[in-house]
Design a protein around this nucleic acid. Structure first.
Lengths: 327, 327
DNA sequence: TTGTAAGCGTTATCAG
DNA sequence: CTGATAACGCTTACAA
């Protein structure tokens, strides 16, 4: 593995000059050319570990997500990658499997590898970020905001998602609208239910018995939907708070040999592309990719030395309206 | 960020002693304890960049895959992670999006970051691995074997998969069995078709007009299935060579308001968990997770200094039979 | 066993 | 503009 010393020797210049050429610092034209030729000849690539050590941080961003199999998070990853790569950073994905210990491990690695920054969708609302904060390492929360830390965050407008979905069901003539969401202790889940409740009340209804908190994945949605369908007086429609639960709810519907024509279904979030939603399912799209893009931009600013107070970006749920309408 | 010098000062020992404790090299008991206490007190974590530079390689394995949204690859990732983590290595995922340039970029980063090794499912059968080979960096190919390089590889038994699926269809009484597979220039695709052809011939049939090469993802499977269904004399069953194409084929079937009872379907590979296969679909499972585990084990051996000639491991398609039967 | 010191490959400072 | 030189934090001969 050649070093800048080898390149310098071959080019007949000092190592410092090689470093300058590599980093775009002005150098006389002929020397620059000699360096480039020499580097080419040796197929030299800078040793990033050395560079990291010297610079105090690498050119790598860690994206720590709970479930690599959930298209919601992989879409975020796409957004992050796009922005990061065009700024010259690479993104590595760290899959925590919703396991707190694994997450802690990856966070620790990000620190000790001197990665440029971390974008985190935490498995644990009460994750400990003290070390990252103390060391002043750039970190941005995406989709899930850890409690009690002043950090940049980017989230979807969950309440609006719940409202929009529920309104859409009312607009189609449904009246007894249920809600399937995740644990009430998770802000996203709670806010989506709040949005649903708000609209239900506005229409003069009170469907609190139709509210189901369940595990946020497919099985949870499925189980909750089964429950709702077996009520003495079942709902005529349901708002489902996320994509995977949506898949589960549709499965339960199919199990009961029903379709979204029989029982209305509105899902907040795009279904996995391998799932073909039956016709008439209402999908309230999420700006998932933009979630990643915004997080990456925020992070890049911090890496660049921005020291503004922590910001929170709430992305509106309506596509084609990237920015909230201002007055 | 404290260094071993800080720890050493606090513990009243030399930096070398700190390093020894950290690396499990024998040190007198009381000193060891003092070092641990000091490290604890400073919440010290070794700087991995420095360690990497000194040791010539890090404790990180890069897993480079073409599509993070395909459960086939994420299952591999699980297997890799399990084995790697229990050996003290961390895994970072690099998503190439089947983009040759992105892949080259990640491979280059793996080298210049001095990562311990690379597990690669390449987007490009003729990927250039000369640099990795020249620098003697451990690399293992998984699922997709790059052409022309002597490197360790782990693959599924594609021909057996094709045979098993086709046999299963014959066993259910189907006779005009089609095959939907990927590009003939991709070994996996070709071999799966070979397996199908072998069984078809063995049954005295010749269904070559029922062979469809298509793009290896959902759309490809769907388009191919549509084509087959619209033939003047359509097949009565179809073998589909991978999971995503399987999803597409099932979609096409549903489009035509048919079920796998009408047209038999056998898929080599588990369908995404968000897809509920209609009853009667035959799924020939793949040992996907084990694919990752084996690749990781192979890689770890190389990292450990193993210099045996390159090996190729072919995993049998039958589950519960991890090892090929020996005589 | 323990400490001292050199060196891994870069970049930044400081003279020239 | 250019070159020597000193770090960056860690491991490992080598000496004690």
């Amino acid at each position: 593995m050649p070093t800048i010393y080898d390149v310098a020797a071959l080019a007949g210049v000092s190592p410092a000059t090689v470093s300058r050429v590599l980093n775009g610092i002005p150098v006389s034209l002929d020397r620059a050319q000699r360096v480039r030729d020499a580097a080419e000849a040796l197929s030299f690539t800078p040793n990033r570990a050395a560079r990291t050590m010297r610079n105090r941080h690498s050119e790598i961003i860690a994206l720590v997500i709970p479930d690599i199999e959930n298209p919601f998070f992989t879409a975020i990853a796409r957004g992050v990658e796009d922005v990061a790569q065009s700024a010259g950073f690479s993104v590595v994905l760290c899959n925590t499997d919703d396991d707190t210990a694994k997450e802690a491990r990856y966070l620790s690695i990000a620190v000790s590898e001197n990665m440029a920054g971390v974008i985190l969708a935490s498995a644990d609302p009460s994750v400990d970020l003290s070390r990252l904060q103390r060391l002043d390492r750039p970190i941005v929360a995406v989709d899930r905001v850890p409690l009690g830390w002043l950090i940049d965050s980017v989230v979807l407008d969950s309440a609006a998602g719940g409202r929009d979905a529920t309104e859409a069901l009312y607009a189609q003539g449904f009246r007894r609208i249920a809600c399937i969401t995740g644990s009430p202790s998770v802000p996203n889940s709670a806010e989506r239910a709040d949005g649903w409740r708000e609209v239900v009340h506005r229409h003069g209804d009170d469907n609190e018995t139709y509210l189901r908190h369940s595990n946020s994945r497919v099985e949870g949605g499925r189980a909750a939907m089964h429950e709702l369908l077996s009520l003495a007086s079942p709902p005529d429609a349901v708002f489902v708070a996320n994509n995977l639960m949506g898949v589960g709810a549709l499965q339960a519907l199919a199990d009961a040999e029903l379709t979204p024509k029989d029982v209305g279904v509105a899902v907040f979030g795009d279904l996995p592309s391998s799932v073909r939603p039956p016709t008439d399912v209402i999908v309230i799209p999420q700006q998932t990719r933009r979630l990643g893009e915004s997080a990456a931009r925020l992070l890049l600013e911090r890496i660049d030395g921005d020291t503004e107070p922590a910001r929170t970006i709430v992305l509106p749920s309506v596509p084609r309206e990237p920015h909230a309408k201002s007055v």
